[in-house]
Design a protein around this nucleic acid. Structure first.
Lengths: 236, 236
DNA sequence: GCACGCTGTGCCGTGTGATGGCACGGAGGT
DNA sequence: ACCTCCGTGCCATCACACGGCACAGCGTGC
Protein backbone atom coordinates (compact mmCIF):
# COMPACT_ATOMS: atom_id res chain seq x y z
CA UNK A 1 0.00 0.00 0.00
CA UNK A 2 2.50 2.51 -1.25
CA UNK A 3 -0.06 5.28 -1.44
CA UNK A 4 -0.79 4.97 2.28
CA UNK A 5 2.90 5.24 3.03
CA UNK A 6 3.08 8.27 0.77
CA UNK A 7 0.05 9.90 2.34
CA UNK A 8 1.45 9.40 5.83
CA UNK A 9 4.79 10.84 4.76
CA UNK A 10 2.94 13.82 3.36
CA UNK A 11 1.08 14.18 6.64
CA UNK A 12 4.28 14.16 8.64
CA UNK A 13 5.90 16.66 6.34
CA UNK A 14 2.90 18.96 6.57
CA UNK A 15 3.07 18.75 10.35
CA UNK A 16 6.78 19.54 10.32
CA UNK A 17 6.67 22.51 7.95
CA UNK A 18 3.14 23.88 8.09
CA UNK A 19 1.85 25.93 6.51
CA UNK A 20 3.16 24.44 3.27
CA UNK A 21 1.99 23.95 -0.32
CA UNK A 22 1.99 21.19 -2.91
CA UNK A 23 5.15 22.13 -4.74
CA UNK A 24 7.43 22.41 -1.78
CA UNK A 25 6.11 19.16 -0.34
CA UNK A 26 6.72 17.32 -3.60
CA UNK A 27 10.27 18.65 -3.79
CA UNK A 28 10.97 17.78 -0.18
CA UNK A 29 9.60 14.26 -0.40
CA UNK A 30 10.87 13.49 -3.89
CA UNK A 31 7.38 12.63 -5.11
CA UNK A 32 5.49 13.79 -8.21
CA UNK A 33 3.26 16.79 -7.63
CA UNK A 34 0.20 14.84 -8.75
CA UNK A 35 0.74 12.20 -6.10
CA UNK A 36 1.26 14.74 -3.37
CA UNK A 37 -1.82 16.65 -4.35
CA UNK A 38 -3.97 13.56 -4.37
CA UNK A 39 -2.64 12.73 -0.93
CA UNK A 40 -3.43 16.21 0.33
CA UNK A 41 -6.94 16.00 -1.03
CA UNK A 42 -7.48 12.67 0.64
CA UNK A 43 -6.00 13.75 3.97
CA UNK A 44 -8.23 16.80 3.89
CA UNK A 45 -11.24 14.67 3.13
CA UNK A 46 -10.36 12.42 6.05
CA UNK A 47 -10.09 15.45 8.32
CA UNK A 48 -6.39 15.21 9.13
CA UNK A 49 -5.33 18.43 7.44
CA UNK A 50 -7.08 21.66 6.51
CA UNK A 51 -6.28 24.77 4.47
CA UNK A 52 -4.18 27.17 6.53
CA UNK A 53 -5.63 30.58 7.29
CA UNK A 54 -7.57 32.04 4.39
CA UNK A 55 -5.34 30.50 1.72
CA UNK A 56 -6.62 27.29 0.16
CA UNK A 57 -3.23 26.33 -1.21
CA UNK A 58 -1.34 26.00 2.06
CA UNK A 59 -2.03 23.18 4.46
CA UNK A 60 -1.75 22.49 8.14
CA UNK A 61 -2.68 19.55 10.32
CA UNK A 62 -5.87 19.52 12.35
CA UNK A 63 -6.32 18.33 15.91
CA UNK A 64 -7.06 14.82 14.65
CA UNK A 65 -3.59 13.74 15.63
CA UNK A 66 -4.15 15.11 19.11
CA UNK A 67 -7.34 13.10 19.39
CA UNK A 68 -5.42 9.97 18.46
CA UNK A 69 -2.59 10.74 20.85
CA UNK A 70 -5.09 11.59 23.56
CA UNK A 71 -6.62 8.15 23.80
CA UNK A 72 -3.23 6.54 24.00
CA UNK A 73 -1.09 7.67 26.85
CA UNK A 74 -3.60 10.00 28.37
CA UNK A 75 -4.98 7.83 31.11
CA UNK A 76 -1.42 7.60 32.30
CA UNK A 77 -0.91 11.30 31.89
CA UNK A 78 -3.98 12.18 33.90
CA UNK A 79 -2.93 9.91 36.73
CA UNK A 80 0.61 11.26 36.61
CA UNK A 81 -0.09 14.98 36.61
CA UNK A 82 -0.87 15.39 40.32
CA UNK A 83 2.13 13.28 41.28
CA UNK A 84 4.34 15.28 38.95
CA UNK A 85 3.10 18.55 40.39
CA UNK A 86 3.86 17.47 43.92
CA UNK A 87 7.28 16.29 42.87
CA UNK A 88 8.06 19.59 41.23
CA UNK A 89 6.87 21.47 44.26
CA UNK A 90 9.15 19.44 46.51
CA UNK A 91 12.19 19.68 44.27
CA UNK A 92 11.62 22.96 42.47
CA UNK A 93 13.05 21.30 39.38
CA UNK A 94 11.82 20.08 35.98
CA UNK A 95 9.84 16.83 36.03
CA UNK A 96 9.55 14.50 33.03
CA UNK A 97 7.12 11.67 32.33
CA UNK A 98 8.38 9.21 29.72
CA UNK A 99 7.20 5.88 28.34
CA UNK A 100 9.29 3.11 26.77
CA UNK A 101 8.80 2.56 23.05
CA UNK A 102 11.03 0.26 21.09
CA UNK A 103 14.65 1.07 21.80
CA UNK A 104 13.98 4.47 23.34
CA UNK A 105 11.91 6.35 25.87
CA UNK A 106 9.46 9.00 24.65
CA UNK A 107 8.65 12.22 26.49
CA UNK A 108 4.91 12.35 27.18
CA UNK A 109 4.62 15.23 29.60
CA UNK A 110 6.78 17.66 31.50
CA UNK A 111 6.55 20.30 34.19
CA UNK A 112 9.27 22.87 34.11
CA UNK A 113 11.16 24.52 36.92
CA UNK A 114 10.71 28.23 37.61
CA UNK A 115 14.44 28.77 37.55
CA UNK A 116 15.88 30.71 34.62
CA UNK A 117 18.43 28.00 33.77
CA UNK A 118 16.37 24.98 32.85
CA UNK A 119 16.17 21.88 30.68
CA UNK A 120 13.60 22.20 27.91
CA UNK A 121 12.91 19.11 25.79
CA UNK A 122 10.12 18.91 23.21
CA UNK A 123 7.23 16.56 23.86
CA UNK A 124 7.62 13.42 21.79
CA UNK A 125 11.42 13.46 21.86
CA UNK A 126 13.07 10.03 22.01
CA UNK A 127 15.99 9.43 24.35
CA UNK A 128 18.28 6.39 24.30
CA UNK A 129 17.60 3.69 26.88
CA UNK A 130 21.21 3.36 28.00
CA UNK A 131 22.11 7.04 28.15
CA UNK A 132 19.22 8.66 29.99
CA UNK A 133 17.97 8.38 33.56
CA UNK A 134 14.47 7.45 32.43
CA UNK A 135 15.85 4.97 29.94
CA UNK A 136 17.98 3.24 32.54
CA UNK A 137 15.14 3.17 35.06
CA UNK A 138 13.02 1.37 32.49
CA UNK A 139 15.81 -0.83 31.19
CA UNK A 140 16.62 -2.09 34.67
CA UNK A 141 13.14 -3.57 34.93
CA UNK A 142 12.93 -4.81 31.34
CA UNK A 143 15.61 -7.38 31.99
CA UNK A 144 16.64 -7.61 28.41
CA UNK A 145 19.85 -6.62 26.69
CA UNK A 146 19.91 -3.15 25.17
CA UNK A 147 20.82 -2.65 21.54
CA UNK A 148 23.99 -0.97 20.38
CA UNK A 149 25.37 1.34 23.04
CA UNK A 150 26.04 4.58 21.22
CA UNK A 151 28.33 7.03 22.97
CA UNK A 152 27.08 10.60 23.37
CA UNK A 153 29.50 12.13 25.86
CA UNK A 154 32.59 11.07 27.76
CA UNK A 155 30.51 9.53 30.55
CA UNK A 156 28.09 7.50 28.39
CA UNK A 157 28.16 3.85 29.36
CA UNK A 158 29.07 1.96 26.18
CA UNK A 159 30.33 -1.28 27.69
CA UNK A 160 27.58 -3.95 28.06
CA UNK A 161 29.06 -5.34 31.29
CA UNK A 162 29.38 -1.91 32.83
CA UNK A 163 25.77 -1.23 31.85
CA UNK A 164 24.61 -4.44 33.45
CA UNK A 165 26.36 -3.51 36.68
CA UNK A 166 24.83 -0.05 36.51
CA UNK A 167 21.35 -1.50 36.06
CA UNK A 168 21.84 -3.80 39.05
CA UNK A 169 22.67 -0.69 41.03
CA UNK A 170 19.47 0.94 39.77
CA UNK A 171 17.37 -1.97 41.02
CA UNK A 172 19.13 -1.92 44.39
CA UNK A 173 18.79 1.85 44.83
CA UNK A 174 15.30 2.16 43.39
CA UNK A 175 16.22 4.99 41.05
CA UNK A 176 18.47 5.59 38.06
CA UNK A 177 21.09 8.28 37.59
CA UNK A 178 22.19 10.31 34.66
CA UNK A 179 25.53 12.05 35.06
CA UNK A 180 25.91 13.89 31.80
CA UNK A 181 25.67 10.68 29.81
CA UNK A 182 23.43 12.06 27.06
CA UNK A 183 24.29 15.76 27.24
CA UNK A 184 27.27 16.57 29.36
CA UNK A 185 25.60 19.44 31.23
CA UNK A 186 22.39 17.62 32.15
CA UNK A 187 21.92 15.59 35.33
CA UNK A 188 18.86 13.58 36.31
CA UNK A 189 17.41 10.92 38.54
CA UNK A 190 14.52 8.70 37.46
CA UNK A 191 12.35 5.87 38.77
CA UNK A 192 10.19 3.43 36.83
CA UNK A 193 6.43 3.12 37.10
CA UNK A 194 5.57 -0.57 37.03
CA UNK A 195 2.56 -2.24 35.47
CA UNK A 196 1.54 -5.89 35.56
CA UNK A 197 3.91 -6.80 32.72
CA UNK A 198 6.90 -4.61 33.46
CA UNK A 199 7.65 -0.91 33.31
CA UNK A 200 4.99 1.28 31.68
CA UNK A 201 6.53 4.68 32.33
CA UNK A 202 9.19 6.57 34.20
CA UNK A 203 9.37 9.80 36.19
CA UNK A 204 12.46 11.95 36.42
CA UNK A 205 13.90 15.08 37.98
CA UNK A 206 16.20 16.83 35.51
CA UNK A 207 18.52 19.73 36.27
CA UNK A 208 21.61 21.42 34.92
CA UNK A 209 24.61 19.41 36.11
CA UNK A 210 25.60 22.32 38.33
CA UNK A 211 22.42 22.06 40.38
CA UNK A 212 22.70 18.41 41.38
CA UNK A 213 25.58 17.80 43.81
CA UNK A 214 25.68 14.38 45.46
CA UNK A 215 23.63 15.13 48.58
CA UNK A 216 20.83 16.68 46.54
CA UNK A 217 20.96 13.83 44.06
CA UNK A 218 20.32 11.35 46.85
CA UNK A 219 17.40 13.42 48.11
CA UNK A 220 15.88 13.84 44.65
CA UNK A 221 16.40 10.12 44.13
CA UNK A 222 14.36 9.32 47.20
CA UNK A 223 11.62 11.72 46.16
CA UNK A 224 11.37 10.44 42.60
CA UNK A 225 11.32 6.84 43.79
CA UNK A 226 8.48 7.63 46.15
CA UNK A 227 6.58 9.52 43.44
CA UNK A 228 6.94 6.61 41.02
CA UNK A 229 5.66 4.24 43.68
CA UNK A 230 2.67 6.50 44.34
CA UNK A 231 1.87 6.58 40.63
CA UNK A 232 2.29 2.82 40.33
CA UNK A 233 -0.24 2.34 43.12
CA UNK A 234 -2.71 4.86 41.74
CA UNK A 235 -2.70 2.96 38.44
CA UNK A 236 -3.80 -0.16 40.30
CA UNK B 1 -7.55 6.98 -2.52
CA UNK B 2 -9.99 4.76 -0.71
CA UNK B 3 -7.26 2.67 0.83
CA UNK B 4 -5.79 5.71 2.57
CA UNK B 5 -9.20 6.54 3.99
CA UNK B 6 -9.53 2.95 5.13
CA UNK B 7 -6.09 2.89 6.69
CA UNK B 8 -6.79 6.10 8.58
CA UNK B 9 -10.10 4.73 9.80
CA UNK B 10 -8.28 1.63 10.99
CA UNK B 11 -5.75 3.83 12.76
CA UNK B 12 -8.47 5.77 14.55
CA UNK B 13 -10.25 2.61 15.55
CA UNK B 14 -7.04 1.09 16.89
CA UNK B 15 -6.46 4.23 18.93
CA UNK B 16 -9.98 4.12 20.30
CA UNK B 17 -10.05 0.45 21.28
CA UNK B 18 -6.46 -0.62 21.72
CA UNK B 19 -5.30 -3.25 22.18
CA UNK B 20 -7.39 -4.78 19.40
CA UNK B 21 -7.03 -7.48 16.75
CA UNK B 22 -7.83 -7.86 13.07
CA UNK B 23 -11.18 -9.58 13.40
CA UNK B 24 -12.77 -7.15 15.79
CA UNK B 25 -11.53 -4.20 13.75
CA UNK B 26 -12.98 -5.63 10.57
CA UNK B 27 -16.32 -6.21 12.25
CA UNK B 28 -16.37 -2.75 13.77
CA UNK B 29 -15.46 -0.95 10.56
CA UNK B 30 -17.50 -3.13 8.24
CA UNK B 31 -14.45 -3.95 6.12
CA UNK B 32 -13.12 -7.30 4.91
CA UNK B 33 -10.49 -8.83 7.15
CA UNK B 34 -7.96 -8.87 4.33
CA UNK B 35 -8.26 -5.15 3.83
CA UNK B 36 -7.91 -4.44 7.53
CA UNK B 37 -4.91 -6.67 7.85
CA UNK B 38 -3.16 -5.05 4.92
CA UNK B 39 -3.84 -1.68 6.50
CA UNK B 40 -2.44 -2.86 9.81
CA UNK B 41 0.68 -4.16 8.15
CA UNK B 42 1.18 -0.89 6.34
CA UNK B 43 0.54 1.25 9.40
CA UNK B 44 3.00 -0.87 11.34
CA UNK B 45 5.56 -0.51 8.58
CA UNK B 46 5.07 3.25 8.66
CA UNK B 47 5.60 3.26 12.43
CA UNK B 48 2.13 4.42 13.45
CA UNK B 49 1.08 1.26 15.27
CA UNK B 50 2.93 -1.58 16.95
CA UNK B 51 2.07 -4.98 18.40
CA UNK B 52 0.72 -4.57 21.92
CA UNK B 53 2.61 -6.18 24.74
CA UNK B 54 4.08 -9.55 23.87
CA UNK B 55 1.23 -10.52 21.54
CA UNK B 56 1.80 -9.93 17.84
CA UNK B 57 -1.89 -10.11 17.00
CA UNK B 58 -3.10 -7.14 19.01
CA UNK B 59 -2.23 -3.62 18.01
CA UNK B 60 -1.82 -0.25 19.63
CA UNK B 61 -0.78 3.14 18.34
CA UNK B 62 2.73 4.46 18.82
CA UNK B 63 3.76 7.95 19.83
CA UNK B 64 3.84 8.97 16.18
CA UNK B 65 0.53 10.75 16.60
CA UNK B 66 1.94 12.62 19.57
CA UNK B 67 4.90 13.73 17.49
CA UNK B 68 2.50 15.08 14.86
CA UNK B 69 0.31 16.79 17.42
CA UNK B 70 3.38 18.18 19.13
CA UNK B 71 4.55 20.28 16.23
CA UNK B 72 1.11 21.75 15.76
CA UNK B 73 -0.31 23.48 18.77
CA UNK B 74 2.68 23.00 20.98
CA UNK B 75 4.40 26.31 20.58
CA UNK B 76 1.16 27.78 21.80
CA UNK B 77 0.93 25.26 24.59
CA UNK B 78 4.43 25.99 25.82
CA UNK B 79 3.77 29.70 25.89
CA UNK B 80 0.44 29.18 27.60
CA UNK B 81 1.47 26.84 30.39
CA UNK B 82 3.06 29.42 32.71
CA UNK B 83 0.13 31.79 32.21
CA UNK B 84 -2.32 29.00 32.89
CA UNK B 85 -0.49 28.02 36.06
CA UNK B 86 -0.61 31.52 37.40
CA UNK B 87 -4.27 31.77 36.55
CA UNK B 88 -5.05 28.57 38.35
CA UNK B 89 -3.08 29.70 41.36
CA UNK B 90 -5.02 32.94 41.52
CA UNK B 91 -8.44 31.38 41.03
CA UNK B 92 -7.95 27.91 42.47
CA UNK B 93 -10.14 26.63 39.64
CA UNK B 94 -9.77 24.56 36.48
CA UNK B 95 -8.13 26.35 33.53
CA UNK B 96 -8.70 25.37 29.90
CA UNK B 97 -6.75 26.26 26.77
CA UNK B 98 -8.74 25.82 23.58
CA UNK B 99 -8.22 26.61 19.90
CA UNK B 100 -10.83 27.30 17.21
CA UNK B 101 -11.18 24.64 14.54
CA UNK B 102 -13.99 24.74 12.05
CA UNK B 103 -17.27 25.25 13.82
CA UNK B 104 -15.99 24.30 17.25
CA UNK B 105 -13.27 24.93 19.80
CA UNK B 106 -10.90 22.08 20.69
CA UNK B 107 -9.42 21.49 24.14
CA UNK B 108 -5.64 21.56 23.87
CA UNK B 109 -4.56 21.69 27.49
CA UNK B 110 -6.03 21.95 30.94
CA UNK B 111 -4.99 22.45 34.54
CA UNK B 112 -7.41 21.12 37.08
CA UNK B 113 -8.52 22.54 40.38
CA UNK B 114 -7.57 20.78 43.61
CA UNK B 115 -11.17 20.83 44.77
CA UNK B 116 -13.01 17.51 44.91
CA UNK B 117 -15.91 18.77 42.78
CA UNK B 118 -14.40 19.65 39.44
CA UNK B 119 -14.95 19.81 35.69
CA UNK B 120 -13.00 17.14 33.83
CA UNK B 121 -13.06 17.26 30.04
CA UNK B 122 -10.91 15.02 27.84
CA UNK B 123 -8.18 16.65 25.77
CA UNK B 124 -9.29 16.95 22.16
CA UNK B 125 -12.98 17.42 23.00
CA UNK B 126 -14.86 19.80 20.72
CA UNK B 127 -17.28 22.33 22.18
CA UNK B 128 -19.80 24.41 20.21
CA UNK B 129 -18.86 27.99 19.42
CA UNK B 130 -22.15 29.49 20.54
CA UNK B 131 -22.65 27.48 23.72
CA UNK B 132 -19.31 27.62 25.49
CA UNK B 133 -17.36 30.44 27.07
CA UNK B 134 -14.29 29.71 24.98
CA UNK B 135 -16.38 29.42 21.86
CA UNK B 136 -18.07 32.75 22.41
CA UNK B 137 -14.78 34.45 23.25
CA UNK B 138 -13.42 33.28 19.90
CA UNK B 139 -16.63 33.92 17.98
CA UNK B 140 -16.81 37.52 19.16
CA UNK B 141 -13.50 38.23 17.43
CA UNK B 142 -14.19 36.12 14.34
CA UNK B 143 -16.90 38.49 13.23
CA UNK B 144 -18.67 35.93 11.16
CA UNK B 145 -22.08 34.32 11.64
CA UNK B 146 -22.10 31.04 13.51
CA UNK B 147 -23.71 27.97 11.97
CA UNK B 148 -26.89 26.41 13.29
CA UNK B 149 -27.45 27.28 16.92
CA UNK B 150 -28.19 23.95 18.58
CA UNK B 151 -29.81 24.13 21.99
CA UNK B 152 -28.17 22.13 24.78
CA UNK B 153 -29.87 23.46 27.91
CA UNK B 154 -32.55 25.95 28.79
CA UNK B 155 -30.09 28.81 28.80
CA UNK B 156 -28.39 28.07 25.46
CA UNK B 157 -28.59 31.05 23.12
CA UNK B 158 -30.33 29.80 19.99
CA UNK B 159 -31.52 33.09 18.55
CA UNK B 160 -29.04 34.68 16.10
CA UNK B 161 -29.91 38.21 17.16
CA UNK B 162 -29.57 37.40 20.85
CA UNK B 163 -26.22 35.81 20.08
CA UNK B 164 -25.04 38.89 18.21
CA UNK B 165 -25.97 41.06 21.19
CA UNK B 166 -24.20 38.65 23.51
CA UNK B 167 -21.04 38.79 21.39
CA UNK B 168 -21.10 42.59 21.39
CA UNK B 169 -21.19 42.36 25.17
CA UNK B 170 -18.20 40.02 25.08
CA UNK B 171 -16.17 42.53 23.07
CA UNK B 172 -17.16 45.34 25.43
CA UNK B 173 -16.41 43.36 28.59
CA UNK B 174 -13.29 41.65 27.30
CA UNK B 175 -14.39 38.20 28.38
CA UNK B 176 -17.16 35.75 27.56
CA UNK B 177 -19.56 34.05 29.95
CA UNK B 178 -21.06 30.63 30.08
CA UNK B 179 -24.05 30.26 32.37
CA UNK B 180 -24.94 26.63 32.01
CA UNK B 181 -25.41 26.97 28.28
CA UNK B 182 -23.73 23.73 27.33
CA UNK B 183 -24.16 21.72 30.50
CA UNK B 184 -26.53 23.25 32.98
CA UNK B 185 -24.26 22.78 35.99
CA UNK B 186 -21.09 24.23 34.45
CA UNK B 187 -20.16 27.90 34.58
CA UNK B 188 -17.16 29.55 32.95
CA UNK B 189 -15.53 32.76 31.85
CA UNK B 190 -13.15 32.93 28.88
CA UNK B 191 -11.04 35.42 26.96
CA UNK B 192 -9.57 35.12 23.48
CA UNK B 193 -5.89 35.11 22.61
CA UNK B 194 -5.40 37.17 19.48
CA UNK B 195 -2.95 36.62 16.65
CA UNK B 196 -2.27 38.80 13.62
CA UNK B 197 -5.27 37.37 11.73
CA UNK B 198 -7.81 36.95 14.48
CA UNK B 199 -8.24 34.69 17.49
CA UNK B 200 -5.80 31.80 17.76
CA UNK B 201 -6.84 30.43 21.12
CA UNK B 202 -8.85 31.06 24.24
CA UNK B 203 -8.30 30.69 27.99
CA UNK B 204 -11.06 29.91 30.43
CA UNK B 205 -11.84 29.40 34.10
CA UNK B 206 -14.44 26.64 34.52
CA UNK B 207 -16.27 25.75 37.72
CA UNK B 208 -19.39 24.02 38.90
CA UNK B 209 -22.25 26.52 38.61
CA UNK B 210 -22.47 26.61 42.39
CA UNK B 211 -18.98 28.01 42.72
CA UNK B 212 -19.38 31.05 40.49
CA UNK B 213 -21.72 33.66 41.97
CA UNK B 214 -21.78 37.05 40.24
CA UNK B 215 -19.06 38.82 42.26
CA UNK B 216 -16.63 35.94 41.72
CA UNK B 217 -17.55 35.74 38.04
CA UNK B 218 -16.55 39.35 37.57
CA UNK B 219 -13.27 38.77 39.36
CA UNK B 220 -12.47 35.64 37.36
CA UNK B 221 -13.43 37.54 34.24
CA UNK B 222 -10.89 40.22 34.96
CA UNK B 223 -8.21 37.63 35.71
CA UNK B 224 -8.83 35.58 32.58
CA UNK B 225 -8.87 38.69 30.43
CA UNK B 226 -5.54 39.75 31.83
CA UNK B 227 -4.08 36.26 31.37
CA UNK B 228 -5.22 36.15 27.74
CA UNK B 229 -3.65 39.55 27.15
CA UNK B 230 -0.38 38.36 28.71
CA UNK B 231 -0.38 35.30 26.47
CA UNK B 232 -1.20 37.38 23.41
CA UNK B 233 1.79 39.59 24.13
CA UNK B 234 4.16 36.69 24.83
CA UNK B 235 3.27 35.23 21.42
CA UNK B 236 4.46 38.45 19.81
C1' DG C 1 -12.29 -37.43 20.21
C1' DC C 2 -14.77 -34.89 16.90
C1' DA C 3 -17.19 -30.84 15.72
C1' DC C 4 -17.61 -26.12 16.04
C1' DG C 5 -16.65 -21.44 16.79
C1' DC C 6 -13.24 -18.32 16.94
C1' DT C 7 -8.72 -16.32 15.97
C1' DG C 8 -4.99 -14.51 12.50
C1' DT C 9 -2.80 -15.53 8.06
C1' DG C 10 -1.98 -16.45 3.02
C1' DC C 11 -3.28 -16.90 -1.81
C1' DC C 12 -4.88 -15.15 -6.26
C1' DG C 13 -7.92 -13.60 -10.32
C1' DT C 14 -10.20 -9.48 -11.30
C1' DG C 15 -10.53 -4.75 -12.48
C1' DT C 16 -10.34 -0.53 -10.03
C1' DG C 17 -7.94 3.38 -9.33
C1' DA C 18 -3.18 5.16 -8.27
C1' DT C 19 0.46 6.66 -10.98
C1' DG C 20 3.19 10.40 -13.03
C1' DG C 21 4.15 12.79 -17.14
C1' DC C 22 2.34 16.69 -19.29
C1' DA C 23 -0.34 20.83 -20.34
C1' DC C 24 -2.82 24.79 -18.81
C1' DG C 25 -4.05 29.21 -16.32
C1' DG C 26 -2.68 32.47 -13.05
C1' DA C 27 0.43 35.26 -10.07
C1' DG C 28 4.52 37.81 -9.37
C1' DG C 29 9.16 39.30 -10.54
C1' DT C 30 12.48 41.34 -13.71
C1' DA D 1 6.42 41.44 -23.17
C1' DC D 2 9.14 37.56 -21.06
C1' DC D 3 10.21 34.02 -17.68
C1' DT D 4 9.43 31.27 -13.56
C1' DC D 5 7.10 29.74 -10.05
C1' DC D 6 2.68 28.26 -8.32
C1' DG D 7 -1.56 24.91 -8.02
C1' DT D 8 -4.68 22.28 -10.79
C1' DG D 9 -6.59 19.00 -14.18
C1' DC D 10 -6.31 15.39 -17.65
C1' DC D 11 -5.46 10.65 -19.18
C1' DA D 12 -3.27 6.17 -20.89
C1' DT D 13 -0.97 2.62 -18.65
C1' DC D 14 -0.54 -1.06 -15.64
C1' DA D 15 0.61 -1.95 -10.74
C1' DC D 16 -1.60 -3.34 -6.93
C1' DA D 17 -5.62 -3.02 -3.76
C1' DC D 18 -9.63 -5.62 -3.38
C1' DG D 19 -12.15 -9.30 -1.15
C1' DG D 20 -13.63 -13.90 -1.50
C1' DC D 21 -11.93 -18.12 -0.01
C1' DA D 22 -9.13 -21.67 2.15
C1' DC D 23 -6.25 -23.00 5.86
C1' DA D 24 -3.92 -23.53 10.45
C1' DG D 25 -4.10 -22.97 15.35
C1' DC D 26 -6.63 -22.66 19.67
C1' DG D 27 -10.10 -23.15 23.20
C1' DT D 28 -14.83 -24.90 24.24
C1' DG D 29 -18.39 -28.20 24.80
C1' DC D 30 -21.43 -31.69 23.71
Amino acid sequence: MQNVINALRVLEEVAARQPIGVGELARELGLPKSTVQRSLRTLNEAGWIRPAGGEVTRWQVTSKALQIARTTELGLRDAAMPVMEELRQRTGETIHLMVPEGDAVVLIERLETDKPLRIVLPLGIRLPLHASANGKAVLAHLRRPAGTLLGYTGTTITDPDALRAELDGVLARGYADNRGEWRSDIAAVAAAVLGPDGPVASLSVSTPASRMPEPLRAEYGKLVTQAARTLTESLG
